[in-house]
Amino acid sequence: MRTVVNHVILILGCLFLVLPLWVAFASSTHTPETLMRHGLQVWFGDQFWATYKTVLFETGGVTKTSNAARMLINSLVLGLGFAVGKIIVSMLAAYAIVYFRFRLAQPMFWLIFLTLLLPLEVRIVPSYAVVAHLGLLNTYTGLILPLIASATGTFFFRQFYKSVPDELLEAARLDGAGPIRFFIDILLPLSKTMIAAIFIIMFVVGWNQYLWPLLMTTDDQLYTIVIGIKQAFQMLYEGGEIPQVQEAFALAILAVIPPVLVVLIFQRWFIRGLLESEK
């Protein structure tokens, strides 16, 4: 009886989360006329190829001057750059804090930690000014670099490094490994699961960045897919002809796929790592 109740709740929860996506996907395979006349669809139409081909490769349509393929690439660059950048920066910062004795190490850590209180939204104007002065508007560098410092990441890696037994460092020192060798040969492989976990989170966060790219990019060629969706919906209500609702849906579906894939792929790796790992 309990399991039945549990399953019912589980199924309801899944439906609640999946149904909107399903409706969007099903609707994206219909003509705009069908959607106008009959509303949202719950089953496939025959316009799958047509819609997705237009959205992915043809400039114009809902996005006017860019296409979804281009925007997906931009998002991918942003998501990867954001996640990888954050991981590299926070691993190195945590490495310095945990393993090197230098003055003010502890205050520095708390300083980094305090920046948690200052998310991008709070410091967006100065950040924008700095990037603009550096001439980095409408560049990938300008898009990614100001975002990659990470107090959260530094904190997680710091906690992880602290849990690595000191004897491992000492054994490595006796084995002739210097600080760089120790980092690459010992700490990096041990951090695999941690890296996978942070990569999942950070990639999704990076992919979903909205405010910063919106401000940073005035050039359509640099629009990310999240910005594209926003543009598309603006277009829907401005346009005079029948709104290309199916294309907007397709765009939304396309925007969801890569983060989902990342979670699926890395989650497996992550769990396997957890099962195998032992410090």
Binding site: P165, E167, L168, E170, A171, D185, I186, L190, K192
Partner: peptide, 9 residues
């Protein structure tokens, strides 16, 4: 070492 300190990976 007491806890062997082998490289686990």
């Amino acid at each position: 070492f007491q806890n062997y300190a082998l490289y686990p990976h």
